[in-house]
Amino acid sequence: MSDRAKTLLLHGGVLVLLFALQFVLPAYHHGNLARIMVLASFAIGYNVMFGYAGLLSLGHALFFAAGMYGLGLAVAHGGADPVSGLLAGIAAALAVSVAVGLLALRTSGVAFMIVTLMFAQVGYLAVLYFGTYTRGDEGIVLQQAQRVLWGIDLTQPGARYFAALLLFAVCLLATLGLVRAPFGKVLIAIRENEERARMLGYDVFRYKLAAVVISGVLSGLAGAVYGLLFGFVGATFASVQYSIFPLLWVLLGGAGTVLGPFVGTLFMFYLIDLSSAVTSAYMLVAGVALVLLTLFAPQGLVGEIRNRIWRWLP
């Protein structure tokens, strides 16, 4: 069997498994997995920028929140339907990612990290400052009637799960196609040796900007869908922790791997969930696990599987 066939079989099998789990999971884990798939889509967006283009951002909460508030404000204050709200969220994430990319890519390395963090903080403070519209920390609660898409009530567990699965499938397959295309190969070349890629004639800035925009739009789409499916749009999602979370998920699962963001999100979500039932120091447990994985699986869980067993993994 060719590597291409193995890749399609593996990723298709994961989607089929997630589809089947809808019918057998208990209610608690059913809801958890829907949330994990949306957050994993956010991590997939981050992975495009960090894992494949080599751009370490500390401000990805800005894109997630842009999509979320684009939808939330359009639906709550503009009376938009869910489809128009999703389009508004995508448009907001697109505009923000283009602006951030054009400005932040004038820097590199540590300076790029700091600039992206500063932009994210500006976004967070803007959410608080315009609390009349955003309702600040209290957030915007979307009513059940505002979450009906094409006659489908997304407040129902089954509909919410399938919507989350659809989002995850789109993000996963889009990333798989991207990394196998010439564009993705160029991003990897830039990540490995930017100067050599420039010497070969590639417009490095243009490719980096495209990576930032694609990453921002996928993350914004995840934010918009999260707000629609779970009915809440709040300032917490624009805070620093939601810039750190996707970095941790990608590092745990394996940066530069297609399935890594999902595995990392699933692992961290349930590690915190299970440890919090045992001790109030659950973040200490998560920290110890992160240190151990960094020491013994520096490429992440999927990355180590690729290095040691399945070298054909994208």
Rank of each mutant, 00 (worst) to 15 (best):
R4F: 04
T7G: 06
L8P: 01
L9E: 02
G13R: 04
V14R: 08
V16F: 11
V16I: 15
L17V: 15
F19Y: 12
A27F: 05
H30P: 03
G31P: 02
N32E: 09
A34S: 15
A34T: 02
I36K: 08
I36T: 08
V38E: 00
V38D: 00
L39V: 09
L39N: 05
A40M: 06
A43K: 09
I44C: 13
I44W: 00
N47T: 06
A53G: 08
G54E: 02
G54K: 06
L56S: 07
S57P: 11
H60G: 02
A61G: 15
F63I: 05
F63A: 04
F64E: 08
A65R: 11
A66D: 01
L71P: 05
G72P: 09
V75W: 08
V75A: 14
G79P: 14
A80T: 04
A80G: 07
P82D: 06
V83T: 15
G85W: 00
L86W: 05
L87K: 10
L87I: 15
A92W: 00
A93V: 05
L94N: 01
L102Q: 12
A104F: 06
L105C: 10
R106V: 02
V110F: 14
V110K: 03
A111R: 12
T116V: 09
L117Q: 12
M118V: 15
M118D: 06
Q121L: 13
Q121R: 14
V122K: 10
Y124V: 00
L125Q: 12
A126T: 15
A126Q: 03
L128D: 03
Y129D: 01
Y133H: 11
E138A: 11
Q144F: 00
Q146F: 01
V148D: 00
W150I: 02
I152G: 00
L154T: 05
L154P: 07
T155W: 03
A159F: 02
A159V: 05
R160A: 08
R160V: 01
A174F: 12
T175A: 11
T175Q: 15
L176D: 06
G177S: 08
G177R: 12
L178V: 12
V179A: 04
V179F: 05
F183C: 01
I188E: 14
R196D: 01
M199N: 08
L200R: 13
L200D: 07
F205W: 14
K208L: 12
L209F: 08
V213G: 13
S215D: 07
S219W: 05
G220M: 03
A222W: 04
G223M: 05
A224Q: 13
F230T: 03
T236C: 00
A238G: 07
S243F: 10
P246L: 12
L247P: 09
L251E: 00
G253W: 10
G256C: 08
F262N: 04
V263P: 10
Y270H: 13
I272S: 14
S275M: 04
S275P: 09
S276M: 11
T279C: 04
Y282Q: 05
L284Q: 07
L284K: 06
V288A: 13
V288R: 05
V288C: 06
L290G: 01
V291K: 03
L301D: 06
V302F: 10
I309G: 03
I309D: 01
